[in-house]
């Protein structure tokens, strides 16, 4: 059976295995809850994982080579979540490679499934391209995170860590009083 056909025919089973495998990157207790709870607001990680992987699967195996813009649209929110969790960069984007493992295991168990080598190459090339793209998305998320932090710093919240507390005036050496400049900010700078 051609690999593309096999992937389409057995979408339900392969997809479930893939989702389970990706959710298993969380501790067992959490993975169980993320797998079980269907409400998208009560379970943002579980919902986004399922939603993104399902949409990506459809894109990958619907016939043509996947359009990178469409791939980005379906996985971006999911990558955004992985990018701020405690995963290393490699583990955060490993979900694409997970699909390779799932499909290989699936084919191994199917006696009549022996896709041609060319099919495997095409499959692997497709996933490798997506994997590279997902890493770019991951980096874009990290950059966005740092920009948010920079914005926060430039909007005065850094005042707390950058300026001495007036309580420093009460140091044992009272002569230090004259050396401490009063905090002076103007709302002009606050914007």
């Amino acid at each position: 059976m051609a690999l593309a056909h096999l992937l389409q025919e057995n979408k339900g089973e392969i997809l479930e295995k893939w989702i389970s495998r990706v959710l298993a990157s969380y501790p067992d207790d959490a993975a169980m809850i993320f797998q079980r709870e269907k409400d998208r607001f009560a379970n943002p990680i579980g919902y986004n994982t399922r939603h993104a992987l399902t949409a990506l699967y459809d894109l990958l195996f619907s016939g043509d080579q996947p359009d990178p813009a469409k791939v980005a649209a379906v996985v971006e929110d999911f990558v955004k979540i992985r990018a701020v969790q405690t995963f290393t960069p490699a583990a955060a984007v490993a979900f694409v490679r997970d699909l390779k493992v799932v499909v290989r295991e699936y084919c191994r168990k199917q006696k009549d499934a022996a896709p041609a080598l060319a099919d495997w190459h095409r499959f692997e090339d497709t996933l490798d391209a997506v994997s590279d793209q997902v890493f770019d998305l991951y980096m874009a998320c990290r950059e966005r995170l740092y920009k948010a932090r920079l914005h926060e710093i430039s909007h005065m919240n850094h005042m707390l860590t950058q300026h001495g507390c007036p309580s420093s005036l009460l140091d044992a050496d009272q002569s230090a009083k004259t050396a401490v400049n009063p905090i002076h900010i103007h709302s002009n700078e606050a914007r």
Binding site: R21, A24, S25, Y26, P27, D28, T86, F87, T88, A90, A91, A94, R97, D98, K100, V101
Partner: peptide, 16 residues
């Protein structure tokens, strides 16, 4: 691949 994702390692951060 299984190890990378499933097992505690420097690659993945420890999975309890």
């Amino acid at each position: 691949s299984v190890k990378v994702v499933k097992e505690p390692s420097l690659m993945t951060g420890a999975i309890p």
